[in-house]
């Protein structure tokens, strides 16, 4: 399965992939550096003070792990399932749907991990984190990718038509804006704040930010458990729904 996906790449696709990596970097420079110059330093919930770019960078990293995983799973997965009938062909061989799904997920993860690693290198070069912290943050981004990859697959099994991608895209953008990415969750009014705190992207941002800024505490353990639970839940849903959709 993974091998199939790699061989399907053309040269244009590599540019698209590079673009996927470029996106968070552009945001980092625009918002982190450009707007950061207007903001100066920012105080973390624990009281530590960091530069705005160092605050935004881990959020961009977590968001791009999310959007990469979602794009690869929802869009491709839905397309293949609905229109290319690729899975139908594969199902004729003795592979269970969930194995196919996991193959897909693995592919999405390899790609996403490459992006994350490259982004971490940039963070180190810009002195936004230390090499050791970057190394420690890498598995956290992989976990983020898996959690959202699973969420994406579960979503893909629920999509009715291409129009639903507008909804997914908008939801994704809202998450991107409001998940403590650009300002700390404490900046929001009390009610909004708790909604933000409960959102999966916020937990991922909190985890990665804790590691890259060196402010890890018990909350980050909670983040890890949250993401693991999300992944398990979504994989179960995806497996069930796929069986229903494909093995009629």
């Amino acid at each position: 399965m993974t091998a199939r996906n790699v061989t399907a790449l053309g040269s244009a696709y590599w540019l698209v992939m590079l673009g996927g990596f470029l996106e968070p970097v552009l945001y980092l420079f625009s918002i982190g550096v450009g707007v950061g110059a207007l903001i100066g330093d920012i105080t973390l919930p624990g009281g530590e003070v960091v530069g705005y770019a160092a605050f935004v960078a881990p959020a961009m990293l977590a968001s791009s792990a999310m959007s990469g995983a979602l794009a690869e799973t929802t869009f491709n997965f839905f397309g293949k399932m609905k229109f290319m009938r690729l899975y139908d062909g594969m199902l004729a061989t003795p592979i269970r749907p969930i194995e196919i799904a996991l193959g897909e997920l693995t592919w999405a993860m390899i790609r996403g991990s490459l992006y994350s690693a490259a982004f971490l290198v940039i963070m180190v070069l810009m002195d936004l984190t230390t090499p050791l912290r970057a190394l420690a943050a890498f598995p956290a981004t992989v976990l983020t990718g898996f959690a959202f990859g699973a969420a994406g697959m579960a979503t893909a099994t629920l999509i009715r038509s291409w129009q639903d991608f507008d909804l997914i895209g908008s939801a994704q953008f809202a998450l991107f804006l409001f998940s403590g990415t650009f300002v700390p969750a404490t900046a929001y009014p009390e009610v909004v704040r708790w909604v933000v705190e409960a959102s999966p992207l916020y937990r991922a941002v909190d985890l990665v930010r804790g590691i890259t800024t060196g402010t890890v505490g018990w909350v980050q353990v909670l983040d890890v458990l949250y993401l693991l639970a999300l992944m398990a839940l979504c994989l179960t849903v995806a497996g069930r729904r796929m069986n229903k959709l494909l093995c009629k």
Binding site: I31, V35, L38, I39, I42, Y52, F173, A174, L177, F178, F182, V183, A187, Y188
Partner: peptide, 14 residues
């Protein structure tokens, strides 16, 4: 959303 999330949110820090 950008106006609210960014203009208001980030704006508060500028």
């Amino acid at each position: 959303l950008t106006m609210v999330g960014f203009g208001l949110g980030v704006g508060g820090y500028v």
